[in-house]
Design a binder for these strands. Structure first.
Lengths: 151, 151
DNA sequence: CGATATAGTTCGACAGTCGAATAATTCGAT
DNA sequence: ATCGAATTATTCGACTGTCGAACTATATCG
C-alpha cells in the first residue's frame, strides 16, 4: 500500500534533486539560476514560431524589465545569446541562442536524459500512460491551488 | 504510446509549477527562497532526533556560514524561528521553529495536499505502486548522474 | 595548563534585483 | 498628416542577499 504522503515526499525529493542538478550545471558554467532559467526559456521559444523578446522573458521569469536587461547583458557577454532588433517593430528585440549554448546544454542534459530513459525502460507502455496521467493531474492540481491563491 | 520525451516534459512542468507555488508562498510571507528552504530544513530536522544547527544548515543550503547567519537573523526577526544554545556543547546553536511558522505552513500547504489527494483518488493502489517506483527510479537516476558530474 | 580545532557571528565588499526616469518606436484620434 | 498616448527596452541609483576574512567563545587533545 502506497500512502499519499509517500508520493508527496517522493515528489519533493525529485524537485530537490532536479534543483540541485541545475545548480551544479550553473556552477560549472558560472551562471546563476536566473540566467539558466532565462536561457531555457529562450531556447524553448524557438519551437513556438516567434523568438523570445525581453518583455515576454521578464514576465516569464517574474522579474522586472531592468533585471531582465541585466540578465541578457550577462548572457550576451558570455556568448550564449545575441540580440537582434525586429524588422517589423523596431522597438522589439529578438533573442537568439548561439550554437555554443546549444552544445553546452546538450553536453549536460543528454547524460541525464539517457539515465532517465534507462531507468524508465523497465516500465511497460501501460504503466507509462498511468504515470503520464498522474503527472498531468498533479500539475493541474498545483496550478488550480495556485490560481486560488493569487486571486 | 507515451514517449519518454513526454515524461521528461511533464516532469519539467511539474517542477516549474511546484517552484512557482513556493515562490508565491514566499511573496505572501515576504520571504525569499533561501529563507523558505532553510525553514523547511529546520522543520524536517524535528523528525531526526537532533535539532538543526547553523553549521549543518549551511551545508544543506550550500551556503557560507555567514550567509546562513543572515538567513537565521531574518527568520528570527520575523518570528518564525528561535535559537537556543546547546546545553552539552555551548558552541553549538539549536534551531527551533515557532508555532506561528508551523501554522503558517499548514495554512498554505494543506490546500495543496488536499488538491493532490483528490487528484490521486482515481488511481488504484496498484497504479500508485508503479508511480512510486517511477519517482524513486527518477530520483536515483538524477542523483547518479549528478554524482558523476561532481567528481 | 596551553595549543589547536570547532561553531557561530561580525564586518566590508561585491553582485543581482528593483523602481523610477529615459530614449526610441508605434498606434490612435482628430 | 500630426500630435499625444502607449509600448518596448534600457540606464541609473539604491537596496539586499551572499561571500571571504577576521574575530569571539567553547571544546578537545597533548
Amino acid at each position: 500500500m502506497v500512502d499519499n504522503s509517500i508520493l508527496v515526499r517522493l515528489l519533493r525529493q525529485l524537485t530537490i534533486e532536479t534543483d540541485r542538478f541545475a545548480e551544479i550545471f550553473g556552477e560549472k558554467q558560472r551562471m546563476h539560476r536566473t540566467d539558466l532559467n532565462a536561457l531555457a526559456l529562450i531556447m524553448d521559444a524557438r519551437w513556438t514560431g516567434e523568438p523570445m523578446s525581453p518583455g515576454r522573458l521578464a514576465e516569464a521569469l517574474h522579474m522586472s524589465p531592468s533585471a531582465t536587461t541585466a540578465v541578457l547583458d550577462r548572457l550576451e557577454a558570455s556568448g550564449h545569446v545575441h540580440r537582434t532588433r525586429s524588422a517589423h517593430d523596431r522597438r522589439k528585440v529578438e533573442l537568439h541562442v548561439n550554437d555554443s549554448a546549444l552544445e553546452l546544454g546538450r553536453a549536460f542534459f543528454v547524460p541525464l536524459n539517457e539515465a532517465l530513459t534507462r531507468a524508465w525502460d523497465e516500465f511497460a507502455d501501460r504503466d507509462k500512460e498511468v504515470i503520464a496521467r498522474f503527472l498531468g493531474a498533479s500539475i493541474d492540481a498545483t496550478k488550480a491551488v495556485r490560481a486560488g491563491l493569487t486571486g
